[in-house]
Simulated assay, not measured.
Amino acid sequence: MTGLATFLEAHLEQGAILVSIERAEGSTPRETGATMVVTAEGNSGTIGGGQLEFHCTDIALEMLASGESSRRLDIPLGPQMGQCCGGRVGVVLERGRPCHLAALQAAEAARRASQPAVLILGAGHTGRALAEALMRLPLSVILIDDREGQMHDLPVGVACQRLDDPVEAIASAQPGTAFVILSHSHALDYRLTEAALLRGDAAYVGMIGSATKRARFAASFRRRHPASDALACLTCPIGGDDVDDKRPEVIAALTAAELVRSLLAKQRASGQSVAQGRQGPGRRAGDDGVAA
């Protein structure tokens, strides 16, 4: 997926219009700051789709043809616009310049640096499917395995790492990392899950498995760490147990939704707190490991 900065850079000389939401009131398709780039050859990004986006694209194309440099719009999202959101947006359209490119590049770098980290520990069928499901989301994802030759034929853009002992990745991860554990071995799953839980600062710890597998792990964990309450932070099975479908792609889709809800909701809540300060068990099998 091409970033806005890359797209703008490729079309800066021939002409491009940046279309941005500078004000969003009430119910709107996108938030303040949402941006797309319009050129005579096509667009990149979105300000929410629908008639709002069609209307702004038409105006941007008019600006490209006439040489107009900037325009501001105040648009109610009601019947006249063919939208039923009911909110109102302020839109700014500007001819792309090098300063816009630099700003987009800086913003994209900042977003990448702030994206929640997800370590997928196990590059079997489900681990690979999960990496593919997450690669287009605003998450920093690394697929890790201890086996040679396990990282072949991965889609472009999926970061991967082979470690003799994947526990090293857990030990060196940043606070707030999410750990998804679905290796080829129950014993390795247990060791990785224990290490992730004992950190005490993970945003998410999930282990593929069944009710039996969870119970066995929990019994072992309590014997080894009787004073710890970290088990309350374990998600097992990953993806929930309300869909009885063990295909890797299905488990990956359910787990991806679970991670988005967990990580991005926490990220949003954390951002809101900063702004205010300034003013069960189930069943799931799959992957190489057997959910006993």
Score class of each variant (00 low, 15 high):
A291S: 10
R247L: 13
I238V: 14
R72T: 13
H11C: 08
A292G: 05
P226N: 01
A106Q: 15
D288R: 06
L104Q: 11
L231W: 01
I17D: 04
A102S: 13
L93P: 14
E108R: 08
V156S: 12
A107P: 08
Q51Y: 06
E31R: 13
P138M: 06
V290P: 00
G45D: 04
E31T: 11
A60Q: 01
Q276T: 02
M63W: 03
V260D: 00
A292T: 03
G67D: 02
E53W: 11
I144F: 12
A215N: 12
S44K: 07
G209N: 09
L192G: 13
S185K: 12
L259Y: 05
F217L: 15
L93I: 13
E132G: 07
D58P: 00
L188S: 15
G15C: 13
R71F: 02
G282F: 07
P98V: 05
T235L: 02
S210R: 08
R112G: 14
F7M: 08
Y204M: 12
L130N: 06
L139Y: 11
Q279G: 11
Q80A: 13
V250M: 12
G282V: 03
R147I: 11
S273H: 01
E132S: 10
A227D: 07
I208T: 09
G289I: 02
D245F: 01
P138V: 08
P155L: 14
V37R: 05
V19W: 06
A218D: 12
Q115L: 05
A24E: 10
H100Q: 03
G49K: 07
A219D: 14
S220F: 07
M1H: 09
G48S: 09
E62N: 07
E168M: 03
A60G: 01
R112Q: 15
S270W: 01
T28E: 07
Q161K: 07
G42S: 02
S66F: 02
A227Q: 06
F179D: 11
L234S: 03
G42K: 05
V118M: 13
E168K: 01
I251Y: 04
T32A: 15
A107E: 15
A196N: 11
E148K: 15
L130Q: 04
P226H: 02
L254H: 05
I17M: 15
H225R: 05
V37H: 04
A40H: 05
V156I: 12
L64W: 02
A5G: 09
R71S: 06
V91H: 08
Q14N: 12
S27K: 06
S210Y: 07
D145T: 13
P76L: 02
I17N: 03
G176W: 04
M36E: 01
A285N: 05
Q174F: 00
Y190A: 15
R268T: 10
V92S: 14
L192P: 13
G127I: 10
H186I: 12
C233N: 05
G282R: 10
S220W: 14
R162W: 00
V290H: 06
F179I: 12
V37E: 09
A230W: 04
V205F: 13
K213F: 08
G3L: 08
D245S: 06
A219T: 14
L12H: 10
R136S: 14
L264Y: 02
I170H: 00
T32Q: 15
